[in-house]
Structure formats: structure tokens, C-alpha cells
């Protein structure tokens, strides 16, 4: 498979609901006697996607539609219940606030840790350390433990690492919305640069302006991929659905 490609093949993901899980050994032993009854929840159902290397792919959908889970499957954090996900090349992901940061370590140590997780040695990471610190704009805080960081600092450092490790694939969840306007613009500019360099980018966002920049947009609704295609078509179909449910909401209220 070519580097930078993501192939999602017939993927379904089931989560067990927490309230019915035994939380202690005692409970687990007692439960064996009882009839097994677990609540299951299918977050994703039969998703097929073929993302070409170097493309910019957007994902939209309502809250809880499975967008983030799909991104996590691509990042290899979860394993699909059925089907397979293949993402080749160096994968860098910015999935949630401070993702991949250990709270007790300093910013600098976390940068090395993130590098190690991508298979980048300390030496190589040191070479790009200055760029990362500069891009994040967190200054001297880089030598403080990240648990004292503000949410803006978290996301700035996270993004700085994610884009400065020359990834083949970049997965970005809605986190950049946390940064201020100036930082968001810098992120977008940097993502443009990565895209020009041939990095595959998958972006989850509610920002329809941002979606317009994608090559392709997929719309997830209750765990199913309902529409995939040019950004204009998919976004307008999505907005139409939102509008119509908005109307029904109003009629109910009346």
C-alpha cells in the first residue's frame, strides 16, 4: 500500500456500555452466576472509505455520530470490532486536548515522548525542538509540567508537535477551535503547507468554511456514512438535514 493512504474496509465498532460492566472482581465473580446481559452500542456501522495519499478529507456530522471514533480507529487507538483499518506511513494525530501528553512531564519531555511514539529518536527531536517551541509560542513554559498549562497552551504545543514531525498522515479533531483566532489561522496555514507537501489530512470539524477547502467530505449520521463526495454537495445536504430537524423541533414546541 502506498504511503499516506488510509483504507477503511467494512468497519463496525461496538462499545459496551459502562453501567453494566462489573467494576470489581467480586462483582465479576457474582455475575457469572447470573445471566449475562450487556448493553451494547454500535458507534460505527459498516464504514467504507478510501482516502488517497495527499488528499484533504473532511468529516462532518452531529455530536455523537461517530466522527471521533472513526478518527481514533484510524489512529490505531481502538481496534475495529469488524472490518479493518489500514493507515500507512508516519501518522500524527491531534485528537483531543493534550492528546498524547503525560500530565506530570514537562512540555519538553512530552515532546520527546511524542517523538518516541512516532519512532523519532531524541537526537532528531532535539533538532526540531526550537521550531516546535517557537510555533507553539509557549516560551519558558516548555520546561514546566503540562498539567499547569492552559487549554490553549495544550493545543498549541500539541499542534506544534503534530505538524513538525513531518507526518505522512495528519488526523485533526475539532481541537484547534480551542486556540485563539491568530493561532487558528497559523494552524490552517501550516495545514495548507503540509497538504502541498503531500501529507494526507483528515479533519473533523463543524466549521463549514473549513470543509469547503477539502477535496472530499464524508457525512456521518448515527454511525453510518450517509453521504460522501464534493464538499459543496455533502455540506449542503448536511445543513438541509439540520434545518429540517430544526423545523420539526419548532413545530413540536408550538
Amino acid at each position: 500500500m502506498t504511503i499516506g493512504a488510509i483504507v477503511v474496509d467494512g468497519v463496525s465498532k461496538r462499545f459496551r456500555l459502562e453501567r453494566n460492566r462489573p467494576s470489581s472482581l467480586k462483582e465479576a465473580v457474582l455475575r457469572i452466576a447470573r445471566t449475562r446481559h450487556t448493553d451494547e452500542f454500535w458507534v460505527l456501522q459498516n464504514i467504507n472509505l478510501d482516502i488517497a495519499p495527499g488528499s484533504f478529507f473532511g468529516l462532518i456530522g452531529h455530536n455523537g455520530s461517530g466522527k471521533s471514533t472513526l478518527l481514533r480507529l484510524m489512529a490505531g487507538i481502538h481496534r475495529p470490532t469488524f472490518g479493518s483499518v489500514e493507515a500507512t506511513g508516519r501518522l500524527s494525530a491531534l485528537l483531543e486536548l493534550g492528546s498524547g501528553f503525560h500530565p506530570d512531564l514537562t512540555g519538553r519531555e512530552n515532546v520527546y515522548l511524542n517523538g518516541a511514539m512516532l519512532g523519532i529518536s531524541r537526537k532528531q527531536m532535539s533538532a526540531s525542538m526550537d521550531d516546535i517551541i517557537e510555533f507553539s509560542g509557549i516560551g519558558d513554559f516548555v520546561d514546566e509540567p503540562v498539567k499547569i498549562y492552559s487549554s490553549g497552551m495544550y493545543v498549541r504545543l500539541g499542534f506544534a508537535v503534530a505538524v513538525n514531525v513531518s507526518p505522512d498522515i495528519l488526523l485533526v479533531d475539532e481541537v484547534i477551535a480551542v486556540g485563539d483566532e491568530e493561532f487558528q489561522r497559523r494552524c490552517l496555514k501550516h495545514m495548507d503547507m503540509l497538504r502541498d507537501r503531500g501529507t494526507t489530512i483528515v479533519l473533523v470539524s463543524h466549521n463549514t468554511d473549513l470543509m469547503a477547502e477539502c477535496h472530499q467530505v464524508g457525512w456521518l449520521d448515527h454511525g453510518k456514512l450517509v453521504k460522501i463526495g464534493a464538499p459543496g454537495d455533502v455540506v449542503s445536504a448536511y445543513l438541509e438535514m439540520v434545518d429540517s430537524s430544526d423545523n420539526t423541533l419548532h413545530t413540536h414546541n408550538n
Binding site: G76, A93, S99, F101, N114
Partner: peptide, 10 residues
């Protein structure tokens, strides 16, 4: 590392 593992693969 389990919290970390929930956010990033290694």
C-alpha cells in the same frame, strides 16, 4: 500510561 494510550497509539 493507560490514560495516554486512550489518546494516542503506541
Amino acid at each position: 500510561v493507560s490514560d495516554l494510550r486512550k489518546k494516542i497509539y503506541f
